[in-house]
């Protein structure tokens, strides 16, 4: 009843102030909560590139450009996936599916955001950052959404490259080029993606099945997915040790180990199939905090 009441209240508010409803729907299209994590990786990579605290203006323009870029990519993704979103419980209330925003308008909005992001990043940071953000959009929309998502169980592994671009954008915004440290940060996000997304897929297996999306648990089952979550968590943990070997400080090493061991423990509980707690959900939610905190440790270590 509470949810019904909220829906009625929201609808009434939209009728009273239609402009606010449209603005809220446009913001919803950009998926702000997902972008917030991407921006954490972007800004912390800027600290690592600077080996200190970057200029506040540079951070501001990079964050704005990064939001526009990721928001545009997310909007175009919802335009392409509107048929899938309509049959999944998690996404059936999105603005395009419900008709609150027309598909054509959403596509135009998404493309406009991407163009704006390139201009903001190009003119106010560096053109390498602008180019990299555009590559991220193309990977997300072209490689992941249009090709891999509906055709292979490896969709989120290869598609994870798109989500790993933001640290490169942050790094390039500061230095105008890419060093080995930037590649390591890219790799960390890349190998973090499979255990993160497959934990989520375990929670939404039925939705993905009904939508015909060949996520790993749909095709190979839950136990096979749990094994892969554990194995990829080990790859991820090993990869997070590499920055220390490459020259990062002890602060980073301690942070990577302290944050990574609980991740491995949760993945282990998930793999064992322990029923005492919902380990897929716990692993998924921890993975979000894990990535954000790990990048904060990267920034702190670089600035210290």
């Amino acid at each position: 009843m509470d949810r019904l009441g909220d829906a009625v209240s929201t609808a009434a508010a939209d009728v009273a102030t239609p402009g606010r409803g449209i603005v809220r729907d446009l913001i919803t299209l950009t998926k702000p909560r997902i972008i917030s994590l991407l921006l954490v990786t972007t800004v912390c990579a800027m600290f690592a590139a600077q080996q200190g605290v970057p200029s506040g203006w540079l951070i501001l323009w990079t964050v704005i450009g990064g939001y526009l870029s990721a928001g545009g990519a997310n909007t175009i993704n919802q335009y392409v996936d509107r048929d899938i979103d309509a049959v999944m419980g998690r996404t059936e209330r999105r603005p395009i599916v419900t008709g609150r925003i027309s598909a054509g308008a959403a596509l135009a909005f998404g493309v406009g955001l991407v163009i704006a992001s390139v201009l903001v990043l190009g003119f106010l940071t560096t053109w390498l950052a602008a180019g990299l953000s555009l590559v991220g959009v193309l990977l997300y929309v072209g490689l992941y959404t249009l090709w891999l998502k509906r055709t292979t169980i490896h969709n989120i592994v290869i598609g994870g490259a798109a989500g790993a671009i933001p640290p490169l954008v942050g790094w390039a915004a500061v230095t105008g080029d890419l060093a080995f440290g930037a590649v390591l940060l890219f790799a960390i996000v890349f190998v973090w993606t499979p255990p993160h997304f497959w934990a989520l897929a375990l929670m939404l297996e039925r939705d993905y099945d009904e939508a015909g999306v060949p996520m790993l648990p749909v095709v190979y089952g839950e136990q096979a997915t749990r094994v892969q979550v554990l194995l990829w968590s080990v790859v991820m943990f090993g990869t997070t040790l590499l920055p220390y070997a490459a020259g990062a400080g002890v602060t980073y090493l301690v942070g990577a180990v302290v944050l990574g061991l609980p991740f491995l423990w949760m993945a282990g509980k998930l793999w064992r199939g322990d029923r005492d707690r919902p380990w897929a959900a716990i692993t998924f939610h921890y993975s979000l905090a894990y990535l954000a905190l790990l990048f904060v440790v990267v920034a702190v270590d670089a600035a210290a």
């Binding site: 194995l231 080990v234 790859v235 090993g238 990869t239 040790l241 590499l242 070997a245």
Partner: peptide
């Protein structure tokens, strides 16, 4: 580095 290599290559 050796620990990382063992974990990454083994897994």
């Amino acid at each position: 580095l050796i620990i990382a290599a063992v974990l990454v290559v083994g897994a």
